[in-house]
Design a protein around this nucleic acid. Sequence first.
DNA 1: CTCCTTTTTGCAAATCATTTGCATTTACAT
DNA 2: ATGTAAATGCAAATGATTTGCAAAAAGGAG
Lengths: 140, 140
Amino acid sequence: MKDTGRLEAELKKKGYKLTEQRRLIIEVFSENPGHHTAQEIFDLAKRKLRSINFSTIYRNLELLSALDIINKLYIESGTSHYELCGGTHHHHIICKGCGETREMNICPYESLEEEKLNELGFKVTDHKFKIYGYCSKCRP
Amino acid sequence: MKDTGRLEAELKKKGYKLTEQRRLIIEVFSENPGHHTAQEIFDLAKRKLRSINFSTIYRNLELLSALDIINKLYIESGTSHYELCGGTHHHHIICKGCGETREMNICPYESLEEEKLNELGFKVTDHKFKIYGYCSKCRP
DNA sequence: CTCCTTTTTGCAAATCATTTGCATTTACAT
DNA sequence: ATGTAAATGCAAATGATTTGCAAAAAGGAG
């Protein structure tokens, strides 16, 4: 029983149940910092609960994203990545050579823009910023 | 024969051929501003060349992206979107309700960051910035 | 213009990520 | 301890994208 607190509260608030699988998914994220694909989460979770099913992973990654407990990334490559929310605000820097993705703490976003958009009727909830290029290993 | 110039040059440079289908894909983009899915490009192209095949579309969207003639977007939703390069530099604002995506000309990126990264061994080529939220129709 | 080599295309089948229907099991409020 | 709604596992379906291959087209050389 890790820090089940936040998770349990968010789930209960909307009538969802705190299942072993849900606790486990969060545990896996906690123990493995950074972002992961559904496949990775599945593999890691399976080590701890052999019976866990892939569709349970997907269903819960979706749910947990909706609850803002995890964050769905959409790193380019056709495969979604997920990361635990609540870390520091950060963005991603992506190597077009090897695909490696690192976090960066630079955020160029100014709340000025947000206000401007709000005035125009668009309610901003969040933003993403990505820098692409080639890492030292992959420089052409 | 539209502005086949740039296209032809870029293709020839690397030994690729200027085919009717490639010309057509660019034509479709030119005639339909904004970004489109492979499916949309296929449908539009098919009107002009009945025999065109879906895999030809995909193969060429990939190729043209690699040649920096079009830009692959990865709008969230599991389906990639593509747009013609060379328009004005812009980013996207995405409604999490209806999924509508609009271009915005705000760019918060400062070349300062780029230099900093270059010094660290990462060669920056481009960046993407997206703002999420709810449009006036979808505000909760 | 014709020939030759290489790249492309169309087609069909394969792959990969993700989603869904359904019967069974589980969480948890009573 | 029990009833009910929610969640899980399983298998099959879906949707986007990719691939192998034989036939067709492009572009350079003669």
